[in-house]
Nucleic acid binder design. Structure first.
Ligand SMILES: [Mn+2]
Ligand SMILES: [Mn+2]
Ligand SMILES: [Zn+2]
Ligand SMILES: [Zn+2]
Lengths: 135, 135
DNA sequence: TTTATAGTTTATAATAATTCTAAAGTAAAA
DNA sequence: TTTTACTTTAGAATTATTATAAACTATAAA
């Protein structure tokens, strides 16, 4: 991912490209595979990966701006921390309870044959399949 | 649901039948339809329904004991509060984002035709389908 | 280029959900 | 009944998250 693409992510999120934000954006988006993370986890990884410090508030703010702009998704996982996902396509997840790890499942790998109709006056927005794993 | 069944729920959860616990158990289990709730919601409803007071800690402790005993399930819902479910059968949910309400879907109403195999060394424990609703 | 402006980072405080603690109360055993 | 172990409770502590406000910095104006 080029520097210009990183800047694009920031601009399209309404964020000026400060050094903290550029580092966060590079860390999140300059990768091949999906990245699932919590804010705390991201903070730890950034501390290892880069030299300068990030206030937690900056990480929260930046991640939320990316989410609002549609560059990140939130995933519901058991537990108290919020999980985020760099894969913003419609997809599903395995969840490994032992390691607390999410694994992507491409939408094409799940075929649903039968589903109930939405309650009166409501429509189906999307269907999420969550597969819990054990050893 | 008979008084004796309420006592059974308590005993099988390792709980003595105190008046607080009996009230909580009656409120949760003496009903026809599934009840989805948060601790805060349960607290409010108990305050309306019954005369005496419940310390929040008592509600947390009792609900967690029921969960550990398998009389309640936890459901993952977007947001910061934990949701519980009196329906302990394998089933799925609609989630109405407008009202923050969960609606049960019987397992038989969902048929999945294709699903990926579990990652190496792991097995599928269960599959949860979560259908988000819009107006 | 300076200078002004609006936006940003940061440490720290505040809030919200949950869990812990320890003293006073109660159910069940002896 | 008396004793013992368990329970309730108010409040403190903890954890994740959000808010605040003072010191910075990117960008727009001059
Ligand atoms: Mn969650
Ligand atoms: Mn949740
Ligand atoms: Zn994902
Ligand atoms: Zn349910």
């Amino acid at each position: 991912m080029k520097k210009e693409d990183i800047f694009k992510k920031l601009r399209s999120s309404g964020l000026r490209p400060t050094k903290q934000r550029v580092e966060i954006a590079k860390f999140l988006f300059d990768r091949d595979k999906t990245f699932h993370f919590t804010i705390e986890g991201l903070d730890n990884l950034l501390a290892k990966k880069t030299t300068f410090k990030f206030a937690l508030a900056t990480i929260y703010n930046t991640v939320h701006a990316f989410k609002k702009a549609g560059h990140l998704n939130e995933v519901d996982v058991r537990g108290k921390k919020t999980y985020f996902d760099t894969n913003i396509t419609r997809h599903h997840h395995f969840y490994d309870n032992e390691t607390s790890e999410l694994i992507d499942i491409d939408a094409s790998e799940v075929v649903i044959q039968k589903i109930p109709k939405a309650p009166n006056g409501k429509k189906i927005k999307n269907v999420e399949v969550f597969i819990n794993l054990k050893n």
